[in-house]
Simulated assay, not measured.
Amino acid sequence: MADLFDDAEPVQGGALHLAEGAILLRGRALAVQHALLEGVARIAQAAPFRNMVTPGGHAMSVAMTNCGAAGWVTDRRGYRYAATDPLDGRNWPAMPAAFAALARAAAAEAGYPGFVPDACLINRYAPGARMSLHQDRDERDMTRPIVSVSLGLPAMFQFGGPRRSDPVARHPLRHGDVVVWGGPSRLNYHGILALKPGEHPLTGAVRLNLTFRAAR
């Protein structure tokens, strides 16, 4: 697949510091990519992707599902974590061992040892889908980092500061990249620009994003 981004950063290997407490680990998930994708398929079969509705009544362009002890949900009542899937009232699928192991290892490499995620939000981006700038602030313990894994089509990641008005840098994310942020960057604004059309040999015309949190 032709790369949709033309830049001088290495495609695989190495680390890029985005801000104090935030690091991009190039290609960190490639060694377990097949286990991750198999896990996503099993999770989506049990808890299908859906376009959740914001408190303002707008359907999100990104389709979502969850695994782990808690799942992130949004509806007209607000943003929150829930132990059960609102579609059927059942517990979210268990987090696969490969998911948790990668999240722990990547967090440790970024300087956050002892990270134990209990929630994994899985986002599926089709061309044109985007995630506006936002903070991850629904978790109880803000001392624990966020670990974000990219699979499939490349995307442009936006990473700003703790205030919405802070300057925002753009970083291309490719299949297998992992971003970890915490500490002084834990509440930095971040988002994804509209996904460009393309075709990935493992995911087809979509991008998958696994976001690990210690929610409870």
Rank of each mutant, 00 (worst) to 15 (best):
A83G: 11
R174F: 01
P48L: 06
A59R: 08
G111E: 07
V32Q: 13
H171G: 01
G39I: 04
P162N: 13
D7P: 04
P117H: 11
A110F: 07
P48H: 07
E9V: 01
V40H: 03
A29D: 14
N51F: 10
R216F: 10
N91Q: 02
R77V: 14
E139Q: 01
D166F: 08
M60F: 15
V62N: 00
Q33F: 02
V11L: 15
A15T: 15
D118A: 02
R140E: 14
A105M: 05
H58F: 12
A105G: 12
P96I: 12
G152M: 08
V116C: 02
G111A: 08
A2Y: 15
P113Q: 12
H175M: 00
H190V: 10
R42G: 13
G183S: 02
P86S: 11
M52N: 00
A105V: 05
P154N: 05
G111I: 06
N188P: 06
E20R: 13
R174E: 02
L133Q: 06
P154L: 01
G27P: 14
D85P: 08
Y112F: 14
A35N: 12
V116W: 07
Q135S: 11
S165L: 02
F159E: 04
R174I: 00
L87R: 12
R77Y: 15
V62H: 03
V11M: 14
L153T: 01
P167C: 05
L16K: 07
G39Q: 11
L87G: 01
G68Y: 12
R140P: 04
H17S: 13
I43N: 11
V206G: 00
L37M: 01
A169N: 12
G78D: 03
A100L: 04
F159A: 03
I146A: 10
Y189I: 11
